[in-house]
Design a protein around this nucleic acid. Structure first.
Ligand SMILES: [Mn+2]
Ligand SMILES: [Mn+2]
Ligand SMILES: [Zn+2]
Ligand SMILES: [Zn+2]
Lengths: 142, 142
DNA sequence: CCAAAATATGCTAGTCAATTGCAAATACCT
DNA sequence: AGGTATTTGCAATTGACTAGCATATTTTGG
């Protein structure tokens, strides 16, 4: 599975009508796969600009939008209001974000089920979806 | 406690150096206390403009910022990227948001503790804070 | 391999939520 | 009421993000 994703997530890309494996898209995916933390579009742009001086910021935005639709990328909104993006696996999960280095741990959803049950018990609320983010310090930073 | 908050949250306001209880601030607080759902600044502005034609949008933004700092208001980011605001109680809690009418139920944090413990057990992660939002249908809308 | 067709990119010019500077207005205190 | 601290309204600006369009890149299939 990891081997099948080498270079770019070809498996996922095949889901879309037609989608060219361009250098820009490969660059964005490779960068996000390496840095498992939320990065803003302008940060990604600045990092990639070094090796690809003619890259445009609008291309980064368009690429991130496409990857988000595919599910390869998940986005969140920073306190500043700026959007940021992180590489993601397929399965539904949540994020534990290190407040020191920004590293993102993926938290399995299974443990959430017991909490969902508790919520439904004492709240008269039909639960459809949930959005959860934990903040703390990862192994390296604690 | 509810009586002490009549009109405006005077108790909270006293925490700040000096803060005038202006008509604009009272209007924003009263509106948000009535509508227990997330509203954008421009929506709030439009609603208040009816009774106060000379109100400025920038005043609404500044008021919401102030109330957020005080803790009387909590904000989130709509999928569109626009910020929205809801009236909040003091205690740490989470929000269950009705996907039909937008009504916000406050979810007690206590039940979260057992989940926090589970998270710490199978994730090598020092949990400091968390941000949770549930989406579903409230009693009225189910 | 090599075009033609399909799609993506770079650049520029917008858009629009949100912020800011400042003079006029309002709230507070004595 | 009078003086001072704070807020407001208004207009100008910012800054993240989007859109139009000509050019460049990637695919396809001959
Ligand atoms: Mn989950
Ligand atoms: Mn909690
Ligand atoms: Zn860390
Ligand atoms: Zn509802």
């Amino acid at each position: 599975m990891e081997a099948a994703e080498a270079g770019c997530p070809a498996r996922k890309w095949s889901l879309v009508k037609t989608m060219y494996a361009t250098t820009a898209r490969r660059a964005v995916v490779d960068l996000l796969k390496g840095e498992r933390r939320y990065l803003t579009a302008s940060t990604i742009f600045a990092l990639l600009k070094r090796d690809n001086p003619k890259l445009a910021l609008s291309t980064v935005y368009r690429t991130l939008e496409t990857l988000t639709e595919l599910g390869s990328v998940s986005s969140r909104t920073e306190p500043s209001g700026e959007a940021s993006f992180v590489y993601c696996n397929d399965e539904h999960h949540h994020h534990a974000i290190c407040t020191v280095c920004g590293h993102v741990d993926e938290v399995d959803c299974a443990a959430m089920e017991q909490f969902r049950a508790a919520l439904l018990a004492n709240q008269s609320f039909t639960l459809d979806e949930h959005s959860v983010e934990f903040y703390g310090r990862c192994t390296r930073c604690r």
